Amino acid sequence: DEVTIHLGDKTIRVDGLDKELLEILKELARRGADEEELRKEIERWER
């Protein structure tokens, strides 16, 4: 499953996201997290 996250004018595509992680990323994005913060969160989950 590829998920596309839209952040204002930026788009991040991620393969096979965990549903819980997806919810966390959506919440972070709502709070104004930037792409770098979201990537760090994704990397934390992948470990």
Score class of each variant (00 low, 15 high):
28 L>P: 00
17 L>T: 04
21 L>N: 00
43 E>V: 06
2 E>C: 07
46 E>H: 10
44 R>M: 10
5 I>N: 03
46 E>G: 06
25 L>K: 00
36 E>S: 10
12 I>V: 07
26 K>W: 14
22 L>Q: 12
33 A>R: 02
27 E>G: 05
14 V>Q: 03
40 K>V: 06
10 K>L: 15
2 E>V: 14
36 E>M: 12
17 L>C: 05
17 L>K: 07
41 E>V: 13
11 T>D: 11
47 R>C: 15
45 W>D: 00
10 K>T: 15
38 L>R: 01
28 L>T: 00
17 L>E: 02
33 A>I: 03
34 D>W: 02
11 T>G: 14
9 D>L: 05
25 L>H: 00
23 E>A: 11
38 L>P: 00
18 D>H: 09
31 R>L: 11
42 I>G: 00
18 D>S: 12
21 L>Y: 01
17 L>R: 04
14 V>C: 06
32 G>R: 01
45 W>C: 01
19 K>N: 12
19 K>R: 11
46 E>Q: 09
9 D>G: 07
44 R>S: 08
6 H>P: 08
21 L>W: 02
33 A>Y: 07
44 R>C: 08
46 E>T: 07
30 R>N: 13
7 L>H: 04
40 K>D: 10
37 E>A: 13
5 I>F: 02
32 G>N: 03
43 E>F: 03
11 T>V: 13
47 R>G: 15
19 K>A: 13
44 R>Q: 11
20 E>M: 10
1 D>V: 13
27 E>A: 05
20 E>I: 10
31 R>C: 09
23 E>W: 10
26 K>T: 09
44 R>E: 12
35 E>M: 05
39 R>M: 15
6 H>M: 14
37 E>T: 14
21 L>A: 02
4 T>P: 08
14 V>N: 02
43 E>D: 08
38 L>I: 14
11 T>P: 07
28 L>D: 00
35 E>S: 07
36 E>Q: 11
12 I>T: 02
9 D>Q: 03
6 H>W: 09
28 L>N: 00
16 G>V: 11
34 D>I: 05
15 D>Y: 05
32 G>V: 00
29 A>V: 14
27 E>F: 04
37 E>W: 03
38 L>N: 00
2 E>W: 14
4 T>A: 12
26 K>Q: 14
40 K>I: 10
29 A>L: 13
47 R>M: 15
24 I>R: 11
44 R>T: 08
7 L>Q: 04
30 R>E: 12
45 W>H: 04
5 I>R: 01
14 V>Y: 14
46 E>C: 06
13 R>Y: 12
29 A>C: 05
32 G>F: 01
39 R>I: 14
37 E>N: 03
10 K>E: 10
47 R>K: 15
26 K>Y: 15
44 R>G: 05
4 T>Y: 15
18 D>I: 06
15 D>P: 15
37 E>V: 11
12 I>K: 00
2 E>D: 12
1 D>T: 14
41 E>H: 04
26 K>V: 14
15 D>I: 08
30 R>S: 13
27 E>K: 03
44 R>D: 09
16 G>S: 11
26 K>L: 14
45 W>F: 07
40 K>P: 00
5 I>L: 09
29 A>H: 07
28 L>Y: 03
18 D>K: 05
1 D>Y: 14
1 D>G: 13
13 R>F: 14
28 L>I: 03
34 D>C: 03
45 W>S: 01
37 E>F: 06
38 L>W: 04
17 L>Y: 11
7 L>W: 08
4 T>R: 06
37 E>D: 13
19 K>T: 10
7 L>F: 12
15 D>T: 09
12 I>E: 02
22 L>Y: 10
4 T>L: 13
41 E>N: 02
44 R>H: 09
25 L>G: 00
3 V>P: 09
11 T>L: 13
26 K>F: 15
32 G>L: 01
6 H>T: 13
26 K>I: 15
33 A>G: 06
9 D>Y: 04
18 D>G: 07
43 E>Q: 07
19 K>V: 09
3 V>A: 14
17 L>F: 10
27 E>Y: 05
45 W>L: 01
40 K>C: 03
33 A>D: 01
10 K>N: 11
22 L>H: 04
4 T>S: 10
46 E>S: 05
3 V>I: 14
36 E>F: 10
11 T>M: 04
47 R>H: 15
2 E>A: 13
41 E>I: 08
22 L>S: 03
34 D>K: 13
29 A>M: 12
42 I>P: 00
38 L>G: 00
23 E>D: 11
5 I>M: 06
1 D>I: 13
8 G>E: 07
16 G>L: 12
23 E>K: 12
1 D>F: 13
9 D>H: 06
35 E>C: 07
15 D>H: 12
38 L>S: 01
16 G>D: 10
14 V>L: 15
42 I>M: 06
34 D>P: 10
33 A>K: 03
43 E>M: 06
3 V>L: 12
13 R>I: 13
41 E>L: 07
45 W>M: 01
22 L>R: 09
37 E>I: 09
42 I>W: 05
40 K>Q: 13
7 L>S: 04
38 L>M: 07
32 G>A: 01
3 V>C: 14
31 R>F: 09
12 I>R: 00
3 V>R: 04
13 R>Q: 14
35 E>F: 07
19 K>S: 12
29 A>I: 15
9 D>A: 02
39 R>H: 06
13 R>V: 14
43 E>K: 05
38 L>Q: 01
5 I>S: 03
43 E>N: 05
15 D>N: 12
2 E>Y: 14
12 I>D: 03
40 K>M: 12
23 E>P: 02
8 G>D: 08
32 G>I: 00
40 K>R: 12
33 A>S: 05
44 R>W: 07
18 D>C: 02
30 R>A: 14
47 R>N: 15
27 E>T: 06
27 E>S: 07
47 R>F: 14
36 E>C: 04
28 L>V: 01
10 K>S: 14
39 R>A: 08
32 G>M: 01
35 E>V: 09
13 R>G: 08
47 R>V: 15
30 R>D: 13
42 I>N: 00
7 L>N: 04
27 E>R: 03
22 L>M: 10
19 K>M: 09
33 A>W: 05
29 A>G: 04
20 E>H: 08
5 I>G: 02
39 R>Y: 14
35 E>P: 05
36 E>I: 10
16 G>C: 05
24 I>W: 12
45 W>G: 00
6 H>C: 08
4 T>F: 15
43 E>L: 08
2 E>M: 13
24 I>E: 02
20 E>R: 11
30 R>K: 14
15 D>L: 03
22 L>T: 06
44 R>I: 11
12 I>C: 05
11 T>N: 12
36 E>P: 04
41 E>G: 01
11 T>A: 11
